[in-house]
Simulated assay, not measured.
Amino acid sequence: MANPAAESAKTRSDEPLHQRIRSDIEQRILSGEWNPGYRIPFEHELMVEYDCARMTVSKALSALTEAGLLERRRRVGSFVRQPAAQSAVVAIPDIKSEIEARGQAYRYELLSMRRRRASKQDRERIAVPTGATVLAALCRHFADGRPAALEDRLIVLAQVPEAAHIDFRTEPPGGWLLRHIPWHVAEHQISALNATEKIAAQLNIDTGSACLVVDRQTWRLGAAVTAVRIWFPGDLQRLVARFTPSSTTPDAPGRR
């Protein structure tokens, strides 16, 4: 009788099996199903579960060890380490949650979505090879009926193939990615820019109005997952960081 886990892994996408095993384990770790200190199944158990060779399992575990998610102990097994990026998850806000936390009514609108080959401009935003396929989404977030954010996002479908089947007309892509797709490294760039005529029209503000602009990229095991540029009307935003004289990094960064 075929093993269900192996069949699922083999049919889920066109990824090599070792990458799909890695993704399964990675998801269990970063979702909290397997907590720090948990001993994951032995290699021979994973070989049976996925109906594959030891080399395939070992390659997946090695990648997770290099990413800092596993600690492999000879003759003892592989154990979950505290993910280095786990504490950074809170630094990537969910716009819907932020708006509702302020007691405001949230509404979302998908303006456009297109699956396409990455253009030269796309590749300048996110490190993907020529010919890579991306999902490009433009959406708008409202707070109490007023446009509060304009989100311009690229999702790399080689890393997130399931995104091609999500109905982003009803679910914001940023929130969906936070809940379902693990990542290891994120980079933020924050700018103060004046709204162009097109941006101003989308945000219902005057052309040239000051905006807070956040450019963010995330990576998973060294591969780009998503890049997003979010425009916020300047009068709705404040950057706040609390720290002490002895601290070298902000204690509680946030955007308000």
Rank of each mutant, 00 (worst) to 15 (best):
M1C: 06
N3Y: 05
P4E: 11
E15C: 12
H18L: 01
R22W: 10
S23Y: 07
I25G: 09
I25F: 10
N35F: 08
G37H: 10
R39T: 15
E45S: 12
E45D: 14
V48E: 14
Y50G: 02
A60P: 10
A63Q: 15
A63P: 04
A63Y: 06
A63C: 13
T65W: 15
R72C: 09
R73S: 13
R73H: 13
R74G: 02
R74L: 09
R75L: 08
G77C: 13
V80Y: 13
V80H: 11
R81I: 01
P83V: 11
A84P: 00
Q86G: 03
S97A: 12
R102N: 07
A105P: 06
Y108C: 00
Y108E: 05
S112M: 07
M113C: 00
R117P: 00
A118C: 03
D122N: 03
L135D: 09
D152W: 06
V156A: 11
Q159T: 12
P161M: 05
A164P: 09
A164E: 15
R169I: 02
E171L: 04
I181C: 10
P182T: 05
W183C: 05
A186M: 10
S191Q: 12
L193M: 13
E197D: 11
I199F: 02
N204K: 15
I205G: 06
C211W: 08
V213N: 02
D215P: 04
T218N: 09
W219G: 02
V225Y: 00
I230D: 05
I230V: 15
A252F: 00
A252G: 03
P253I: 01
R255D: 00
